[in-house]
Design a protein around this nucleic acid. Structure first.
Lengths: 189, 189
DNA sequence: ATTATTTGCCTAATACCCCTAGGAAATCTA
DNA sequence: TAGATTTCCTAGGGGTATTAGGCAAATAAT
């Protein structure tokens, strides 16, 4: 009997694809095993359990997003960088909704440490540097930025904006314009 | 044999409490049945299925938040209204994390119609009126507001801000200050 | 090339969870 | 109080997560 050639990496990769196809919450050990034409139990030699599998998908997504964002950021500064960075996330979410959802998974502290989370916040800070905000305003602004990007993309994907005719991409651009203005006029105190 | 006195409302109420205690994703028909000392099958006379139960919790949460927001908004305008409104959501999320998560559940169009979703966007618009933004800027601003509130609260709850010592409540206040500035200086075009 | 060893996948079994069908008892109605 | 209704139960089918233990295939050692 020929083997299926499973490895942890191939499982995670396939799970990520599955997530984009059917939704991250529907990614299950069984479904993944089915996709490989293999019994459920066979996956447990490569992956600790379902939680572990999901965390690995999350880390894959975080890494991919960090890579893309780093590329987008290269050679840009100021509003240019802000827009490029923001669009990276939004585009990734549209292209890979399952992976994006995975990236939202609350990671255990240890897993978070091993993830690309740090790179993300580094990049956030790099963008902010262009605006010359002193600490602690910088931290406040980073949190606002992260929240706005994430919230907008999440709500848009959930269809929360679909009741109003206005093109969501346009609102997104205006939101980025507004954020740029905000950062340039960050309130003192 | 005495009856447990189940009704759809009591089930939904209990499910909401359960969600706040153990997390919305862990709310299950079985767990709920256990809480009432009843067999799983008994719940199906009151609730169509697990999905239905979850949707009802979502609608309960949306309604509660709308009520609270409406109260908070009463008699306020401008930045005052903005802050009161935003704090309603954030406070609710902290007090009722499970319900807040439930409110994020993508509802089927029909369920969404019956929900308090419309009240929420009405209130968003009411706040914006104070800033005198013309359409379509108003729609763009609403989307930005909703995204920022939701994103910030979600990330904060997920612990995404806990690696930096700065108090998240302070960053939240500064974010609201910044939003106020943004709305007063909404970029033209 | 034959053993020995590791590794990959399987069978079997347990424990939950979701849900349907049909029955009996508690409660309401006439 | 007889009948109708509602509430909850038993039984049972199907899906997912996970562990334990076994055989066979790929790999390493002799």
């Amino acid at each position: 009997m020929a083997r299926a050639g499973l490895t942890a990496d191939r499982l995670v990769q396939a799970a990520a694809e599955l997530a984009d196809e059917i939704g991250f919450d529907k990614v299950t050990v069984s479904a993944l095993a089915r996709r490989f034409g293999v019994k459920d139990a066979s996956l447990y030699s490569h992956v600790k359990n379902a939680q572990d599998l999901k965390e690995r998908v999350a880390m894959l997504a975080l890494g991919e997003m960090a890579d893309l964002a780093a590329d987008a950021l290269a050679g840009r500064a100021g509003k240019d960088a802000l827009v490029a960075f923001a669009n990276t996330y939004r585009t990734y979410a549209k292209l890979h909704p399952g992976r994006y959802a995975a990236a939202q998974l609350p990671l255990r502290p240890e897993a978070a440490e091993a993830s690309a989370a740090r790179r993300h916040s580094e990049m956030n800070r790099a963008i902010l540097r262009g605006y010359g905000l002193p600490e602690p305003a910088q931290t406040d602004a980073i949190r606002m930025l992260a929240g706005t990007f994430h919230g907008y993309v999440t709500l848009e994907m959930a269809g929360a904006f679909s009741h109003t005719p206005r093109e969501t991409s346009v609102s997104w651009s205006r939101t980025l314009d507004a954020l740029d203005v905000t950062l340039r006029n960050w309130p003192p105190e």
